[in-house]
């Protein structure tokens, strides 16, 4: 199994801790005037997204996590699992609700998503940064309002609810930033 010495620690490095894959967010080298050196790191659990601190003795080694990111096309949901396809190998993989998480609110068939695979198994799914979705439900806006001020809730075809300007109506396609969950423009 591949491993890394603390000397190789840098942001983005994927390591195994307590049986889970983590990515190093920040690495600080700490050493007293004379004596033992330490690496104090902030690491993100790639399964839960939680960031924690951890201190290592400098020179210690840590097992590498076999984690990589890949872009895959979302095919369909069978009611329990989300199915994705690698567009080059046509290999298909499935992910459950825990793994898809927030992305489920935004993705629809054919969308290209970033999947994080650990030992070949998906552990997180990222929706595209911007998606275009149809409004299925919203209150009729005030006539003549084009300022976009105020806003109102609108339900999208995927079930997500976003705040939209008053002038946007049912049946219209809008662009949404999935990272903030905010309306960007009409599409």
């Amino acid at each position: 199994m591949a491993s890394y010495s603390t000397n190789e620690f840098r942001a983005g490095l994927k390591i195994m801790l307590d049986g889970d894959p983590y990515a190093i967010v920040e690495n600080e080298f700490v050493k007293p005037g004379k004596g033992q050196a330490f690496n104090r790191v902030r690491v993100r659990n790639l399964k839960t997204g939680r960031v924690v601190e951890k201190t290592f003795k400098s020179g210690d080694t840590v097992e590498a996590a076999d984690v990589h990111d890949t872009q895959m096309q979302y095919l369909y949901n069978d009611g329990e699992h989300w199915h994705f396809m690698d567009q080059e190998s046509f290999e298909q993989i499935t992910a459950d609700a825990n793994v898809v998480g927030e992305a489920a609110k935004w993705i629809k068939e054919q969308d290209l998503c970033n999947l994080t695979l650990w030992n070949g198994v998906p552990i997180s799914v990222e929706a595209p940064n911007f998606v275009v979705l149809v409004i299925t439900e919203t209150d009729p806006g005030l006539k003549g309002d084009t300022s976009g001020g105020g806003g109102k809730p609108a339900t999208l075809e995927t079930g997500a609810v976003v705040r939209v300007p008053l002038f946007v109506q049912i049946g219209e396609r809008i662009k949404v930033d999935t990272r903030s969950g905010e309306y960007v423009s009409r599409a």
Partner: peptide, 8 residues
């Protein structure tokens, strides 16, 4: 050797 960081 082996010392690299914000203060090293």
């Amino acid at each position: 050797g082996g010392e690299r960081g914000r203060r090293h």
